[in-house]
Design a protein around this nucleic acid. Structure first.
Lengths: 213, 213
DNA sequence: TTCTGTGAACGGATTCACAGCA
DNA sequence: TGCTGTGAATCCGTTCACAGAA
């Protein structure tokens, strides 16, 4: 049944959840779709429509109970549980990911780390010992992880992703600058600051042209 | 005139450019929309339609000349020039961004760095000396930068973004976990791995449920 | 009165399908 | 014959607008 819910809707829910979290910490108890929309730069109708896919969480004439709605969203998104992740690639980028403090408090725990560099393998980072990428497949067949984080160089990324998929990983966060191919039942998100910059320059160029006139 | 071109199209162009770059380095001279589409997981019709907004770059019966099309796209996107960036926030994340080697070769040069921590201010990182964020506004009024990179804690991000906008910056790459508000003539892209993870867990949850049946 | 929930209308992006050129 | 370029058709997400509950 959830199959028919547009993916864009799913991608907005965490944004709503984060805003509700803020509101809650500021002591706010009730919020209207109007206010939430202004806060987030989204139309109120969109928020109401998005939420209506999952239930009727609001009170007519009042708005939404912040705590209640947040809990519903966390439930829907699976944010109440903890998720285990494996990191592949412990170079500069990988180490930055490991030391990033934003995952753990949100329930995302990196429980395995792999690299191909013999100098890195065996090294300990916090509670993790870096394993050789050659044992990636067998390790993940024994120890289940929910999500793979790919932080290897572009030329190895697709192979790593294929291995992850082969071991039954269904969600991948990819930092490598490639357009990875995965089966339809596997979810992938790309973190790619260069692509982000390269699409903005189009507008900067156009703007400068207009400004020069 | 470029105003009518859908933003999604602009966002796909850098992806095409990257793929063409790969093809070129593999010695490929000609490519059809079919092949390129397979490579990228996009329909051939979409590629042809996207490109048709900007001109007629292909040869019927043959396909596209890889080098030629790449050059056209680089021209359209403004990738032939160099762009100067200012980084605000030189904490752990900011330092990782500074040490990331992927920006410079693509023409993105970080020329200024700011932080609010007195211990960081004045410190030299490579060719950069970290300035106090209190001089952000006046510095950017003197030294033009094209793009701002925001890597400050969430609670300061909107203020920093407002300052950037006030000094005439029209493009922002935001790493802070907030839904920042900017005027319509300012472009912003968000790098937010936690949001990416939080939308994938929805599907993992649904999948597990289905698998348990 | 206020604000939700939701069918219906709308608008915009994707895909189709084919004419036309090499 | 092969593949582009592109109007037309389709699909899908957003917005409208209003009935109905508090």
């Amino acid at each position: 049944m959830p199959i028919e819910i547009p993916e864009v809707v799913i991608e907005r829910l965490p944004v709503y959840a984060r805003a509700l979290n803020d509101l809650l910490s500021r002591g706010r108890e009730v919020v209207s779709s109007q206010e939430l929309g202004t806060e987030l730069g989204v139309t109120p109708a969109q928020i109401r429509k998005d939420l209506s896919y999952f239930g009727r969480f609001g009170k007519q004439g009042r708005g939404y109970n912040v705590r209640r709605l947040l809990e519903e969203l966390r439930q829907i998104l699976g944010l109440e549980r903890q998720w285990s992740l494996a990191l592949i690639g412990v170079g500069r980028l990988g180490r930055a990911i490991l030391s990033y403090g934003g995952f753990y408090p949100q329930g995302f725990h990196i429980v395995e780390a792999f690299d191909s560099d013999p100098k890195a393998v065996g090294r300990r980072i916090g509670a993790l010992v870096i394993k050789d990428v050659s044992v990636l497949e067998e390790t993940l067949r024994q120890t289940h992880v929910d999500i793979g984080i790919v932080a290897v160089p572009a030329e190895h990324a697709q192979a790593v992703i294929d291995t992850l998929v082969a071991t039954g990983v269904h969600a991948i966060l990819n930092y490598a600058p490639i357009a990875a191919r995965v089966p339809a039942n596997v979810h992938i998100r790309h973190i790619d600051p260069v692509l982000a910059l390269q699409s903005m320059t189009y507008y900067l160029k156009a703007h400068e042209f207009a400004a020069a006139k």
